[in-house]
Design a protein around this nucleic acid. Structure first.
Lengths: 213, 213
DNA sequence: CCTAATCAATGACGGCGTTATGTAACGGTG
DNA sequence: CACCGTTACATAACGCCGTCATTGATTAGG
């Protein structure tokens, strides 16, 4: 009654290979045949370990979200919470740049022939905001931000970050309005919009930018 | 020495059909064969009128940009320039919602099997910001915004709008932080970040939201 | 050792973008 | 008028894709 067990490595290998193909050759190169070739198996592996190409992509996306989450969680909390917010922004952006194709797939771009995320996937990605929400709460507690809904403020920051990242990856931010320039201005404006003092805001934005990514 | 003339209608029909397919059935349904079937021709028409599928998509994207531009240009200039900025934001968002698949293709998402925009395409899309830049200049002239680079401020607004739109289209903005809620908060924060007075900002945001889209 | 059960390899199917080849329409030329 | 070079489009093929039914291989329990 106990037949040959499924090789748990194969699923992980497929996800890894898919992420690598996605990163190095773009979404168009992601095919069951290429995957089977690089992993050294047949196309059927995709169907036994996942339901099909869509579900494999979904798994890769989940990997991408945990990657992003780990990156954000690695940002340290200092006694300048506004600088922490800025550092989180840099981390978010750095992660997107390092896994640009993956980021595109994660957030609905790169449709990958009809593939789209489910509500569960999106919900899974939502906890990404946790670190940001915590930082915003600390900004409010430190009376740097006016009292308001920290989740809403985090959403605003997220929206701004996401817009910047996608336009940057799309190649829309060129001299003299590069992504770096716009990032600084954007974060500054958002922090000011949240109620921080202009002078302290500038200082914190500069401090946050100096953090290691 | 004078060969058979190309039917100029066919190219337009192809673009129109492509836009319709894109809108109604998504990027996955956009194929030379479906196009040929709906227009009533063969797949070769795509290659004689455009260089291939990529160039047809490019043409559709250009159509999309002129559509967006027309939408933004139709926003009237009133004596409340901040409200005009807000109205431009609503118009931008309304256009994206009405042509969601097209918007995704325009801005790098929906890779459509390896397709990506050229620098020329992006440059063609850049004049989209003109209306926004003009409105920001008027805000500065009316001393609602602090003196600064209007283009940079317009970029910031654009980035925030784009982030909101793409996250909205991706289904990431759900209760209680819906796209409407975030939009208001986002625009408010950006306007405040640009230097406007809080009370007048709120008033203008409300006024701009009441404009017909 | 046999049997049941499960994974994976093979090959097929339809659909895709693209390309080679055929064909018919057109304007210039006699 | 006929003729011909040129070009637009049709047809069919090629290689690739995702998917799946079939079949062989492999393993654990009896």
């Amino acid at each position: 009654m106990s037949p040959r067990k499924v090789d748990p490595n194969l699923g992980a290998q497929l996800i890894e290979a898919a992420a690598r193909l996605l990163s190095e050759e773009g979404p168009a190169a992601l095919s069951t045949r290429k995957l089977a070739a690089t992993v050294g198996t047949s196309t059927m592996a995709v169907y036994t370990h996942f339901g099909g190409m869509d579900d494999l992509v979904r798994a890769v996306v989940r990997e991408g979200f945990t990657l992003l989450n780990r990156r954000l969680e690695s940002v340290e909390e200092t006694d300048d919470p506004v600088a922490d917010v800025v550092a989180l922004g840099w981390a978010y952006r750095a992660n997107a740049r390092e896994h640009r194709h993956l980021y595109n797939v994660m957030f609905g771009g790169s449709s990958l022939s009809g593939f789209s995320l489910t509500d569960a996937d999106r919900q899974h990605g939502r906890y990404t905001l946790d670190a940001l929400v915590r930082a915003v709460k600390r900004c409010v507690a430190a009376e740097r931000f006016l009292p308001s809904d920290p989740e809403l403020v985090a959403h605003q920051l997220w929206i701004a970050l996401h817009g910047l990242v996608t336009l940057d990856l799309g190649g829309y931010l060129v001299e003299p309005f590069t992504a770096d320039t716009c990032f600084e201005a954007q974060v500054c404006a958002m922090v000011l919009g949240a109620g921080d003092d202009p002078a302290r805001a500038r200082e914190s934005v500069a401090r946050g930018a100096l953090r290691p990514v």
